[in-house]
Amino acid sequence: MAAGEPGPNEAGRSAPGPSEPAGRAPAIRPFLLTAGRVAGGGAGPPLPVETQVVATSSGLGALDSLAFEQHDLVAASRRPQSVAELAAELRLHLNVVRVLAQDLCTAGHLAVHVPNARTTQDISVLRRVIDGLRAVPDSRGTLRDSG
């Protein structure tokens, strides 16, 4: 049922097929998608960059009915991802991802797990991070880009 109602940004009925121009204007089109809205614009603080986003089964079920960036966001969230990772992976501005993720969450397509601000003071979490980091070996080899 969550899939029944296209969001206000839905690319629209006038464009039945993908009609995206080849040379995208990354700075402008995303903000058209959000209807000019920006994260944190009056509706509470923006989602923290590490906020975890994961597709709901209804979101995955509705994939075919979603267009463009909304589709990509839900598809990329099959595994839990942070807002920052999604922005990097989809080459979208952080704030566009924030706005779209909140829309998709409202529509029931994504679950958005906003981290608890108290975590920074949580001794057991800090200890776990410390222990986990200590377990990192001195050298891990292959991941680094040279230069």
Binding site: V49, E50, V54, A55, L60, G61, P80, V125
Partner: peptide
């Protein structure tokens, strides 16, 4: 991760994963 593209109606999705607690 390769996930079979969902088809209409019947797609087999694994249970929605619980995300980790993110710290930074």
């Amino acid at each position: 991760v390769s996930v079979p593209s969902p088809t209409h109606g019947a797609h087999s999705v694994t249970a929605v994963e619980q995300p980790p607690l993110p710290v930074k």
